[in-house]
């Protein structure tokens, strides 16, 4: 099994075997993060540019640590402090970054499809760190890795995803990844936040009531209400949202005993996740963050080896 892609734009583009390879590599790379000397020389001399057009702490830091642990050099460009604020277009910024000869560009952008546009125009690898409401593949992979560590497999798991499905790139990557791996996905959220026709993505069931999704679930994935996006206009009040689509201890009892609670972070405490659940033993939120570094190391490792011989 070999990974032949130059870029990782989304889990929709990957096969089950490729996802399997990324996950098993991540599992084997995890050991490096618990060493005294957390570094291997694999990507020595490679340059990774983190190009972030949207705010991010977790993902950017995680990609940066991942690259550094593989001995790559990293440079961070944040849109708010760069010439993007002076009106430079994405393609001009990319051309200028490219002139500095990076090997991998890790980008986050608010427009869905920005990575696809970029990847076609540059010779280096492009990794999607989140594009609009499209995909967030590294989050999807780290979610799957976290589930696999507990259950040993993904096939046959019941995974409830609750919240703003329409605007969530995390949900989309999770759905593409999980359904490919044979898990059963159940979605719940306010009708204003449920994209019509989402069932067509595969083994996906839309539930009217959150309790239906959580009932007997192995994993309950709570999405963040994105207050900075359209959240405000689509919901009467936060209080009402929390009453119908927030997870608390009582509701969690409907799920399987010892079911996993996951959240891509940052948590709005008391909105989608109650503190009694967020801080419980069933919460795997920090495990997700920990796995994020290993998954991103795996992505960087495989795309950087993706050049085909030119004979």
């Amino acid at each position: 099994m070999a990974f032949k892609h130059k870029d990782i734009i989304g889990l929709q583009d990957l096969t089950r075997e490729e996802i399997e390879l990324l996950l098993s590599t991540a599992e084997n790379l995890k050991e490096i993060n618990s060493r005294d000397i957390k570094k291997v020389p694999t990507l020595r001399g490679k340059t990774v540019v983190n190009l972030f057009y949207e705010a991010s702490t977790r993902t950017r830091t995680s990609f940066e640590i991942a690259a550094k642990r593989l001995s790559a050099d990293t440079i961070n460009i944040t849109a708010s402090t760069s010439s993007v604020t002076k009106g430079e277009t994405l393609s001009d910024t990319a051309r200028n970054v490219l002139a500095m000869k990076p090997d991998i560009i890790v980008m986050r952008h608010s427009i869905s499809g920005a990575h696809h546009y970029l990847a076609k125009r540059v010779s280096c690898s492009v990794i999607n760190a989140g594009d609009g409401a499209h995909e967030h593949p590294s989050q999807g992979l780290l979610d799957m890795l976290t589930m696999r560590q507990k259950y040993g497999k993904l096939e046959g798991l019941k995974v409830a995803i609750v919240g703003d499905i329409t605007h969530s790139r995390v949900a989309r990557s999770d759905i593409f990844g999980l359904t490919k791996m044979g898990a059963n996905v159940f979605l719940a959220g306010p009708p204003t936040m449920m994209p019509p026709g989402i069932e067509r993505l595969g083994n996906v069931t839309v539930c009217k009531d959150m309790r239906e999704a959580v009932d007997g679930a192995d994993v309950v994935m709570m999405l963040r209400i994105q207050l900075e996006r359209q959240g405000k206009t689509l919901l009467p009040t936060m209080k009402e949202y929390s009453r119908y689509f927030g997870l608390n201890r009582n509701l969690l009892q409907l799920a399987k005993k010892d079911a996993m609670v996951m959240h891509p972070g940052p948590i709005n405490r008391g909105v989608e996740l109650n503190s009694d659940v967020a801080d419980s033993d069933q919460s795997h939120v920090l495990k997700q963050v920990e796995n994020g570094v290993a998954v991103r190391m795996s992505m960087l490792y495989h795309v950087s080896g993706g050049e085909l011989p030119t004979e």
């Binding site: 070999a2 990974f3 390879l21 590599t25 084997n28 080896g305 050049e307």
Partner: peptide
Amino acid sequence: AEHLPVGK
């Protein structure tokens, strides 16, 4: 041509 699988 592509990176080899990483063992543990």
